[in-house]
C-alpha cells in the first residue's frame, strides 16, 4: 500500500520531488513498482532487495521499463546492515534520493534498515520513506528516523505517511 501511495505522490508532486535526471536508490524494492515509476519519471534508479526476490524484481522492472526509459534501472542485492562501508563504500556512491516503501513492518532488522538509510544519505541526499504507521514498533522506528534525519512530513492520509529525511 505505501508503494502505491509513494508512486502516486511522486507522479503528482513533481515540483516537490523532481526525479528527472536524478540518481535514486530504492531499498527493499520488493516487486519493483516504485523503481518502475521513478524510472518512468526520468530517474536513474538502482533497485535493491534480498537476493531471493531479485529474479521477480528484475522481471517486473525489465518488463515495464524496457523501451520506455532513458536510463534503464539497475537491480542489485543489498542486505540492510550496520557495516556497509566495506561492501558499499561512501566514496563510491552519491544518490539524490533514497526511496523506501513498505519496509517497516514486523521484522527484526529495523535498526539495520535505519543504519542503511543513514549510510546512503549524504549532504544533498533526501531519504523518502513511505509506510503505514500503526504498531508500536512503527512508532519507535518513526521516532528513530526523526532523530537520525532532519525530517518533514510530505504526505499523510490516516495511517499512511510519507516522510522526507535529510542529513543532520
Amino acid at each position: 500500500p505505501a508503494a502505491l501511495a509513494l508512486c502516486s505522490f511522486l507522479e503528482n508532486h513533481r515540483e516537490k520531488v523532481n526525479l528527472q535526471g536524478k540518481k535514486v536508490l530504492e531499498l527493499g524494492a520488493g516487486t519493483g513498482l516504485v523503481t518502475i515509476v521513478a524510472s518512468l519519471l526520468g530517474a536513474s534508479v538502482t533497485a535493491t532487495d534480498l537476493p531471493e526476490v531479485l529474479s521477480n524484481l528484475r522481471a517486473n522492472v525489465m518488463r515495464n521499463t524496457r523501451g520506455r526509459c532513458r536510463q534503464m534501472p539497475q537491480v542489485a542485492a543489498l542486505s540492510w546492515s550496520y557495516n556497509l562501508e566495506s561492501t558499499h563504500p561512501s566514496s563510491a556512491h552519491q544518490y539524490d534520493y533514497v526511496l523506501a516503501a513498505d519496509v517497516v513492518y514486523h521484522h527484526d532488522f529495523l535498526d539495520e534498515l535505519l543504519a542503511t538509510m543513514k549510510h546512503f544519505c549524504k549532504p544533498g541526499t533526501a531519504v523518502i520513506w513511505a509506510n503505514k504507521v500503526r504498531l508500536e514498533s512503527d512508532l519507535t522506528f518513526t521516532e528513530n528516523f526523526k532523530k537520525a534525519f532532519h525530517t518533514s512530513l510530505l504526505y499523510e492520509d490516516e495511517d499512511m505517511k510519507i516522510f522526507q529525511g535529510t542529513c543532520r
Partner: peptide
Amino acid sequence: TLIWIYHYAGQDIVIYES
C-alpha cells in the same frame, strides 16, 4: 502507462496506471 507487477513469479498480478 499500464504497469504489470507480479507479486510472486507468475502469481498475483497488480496493475497500476501511471
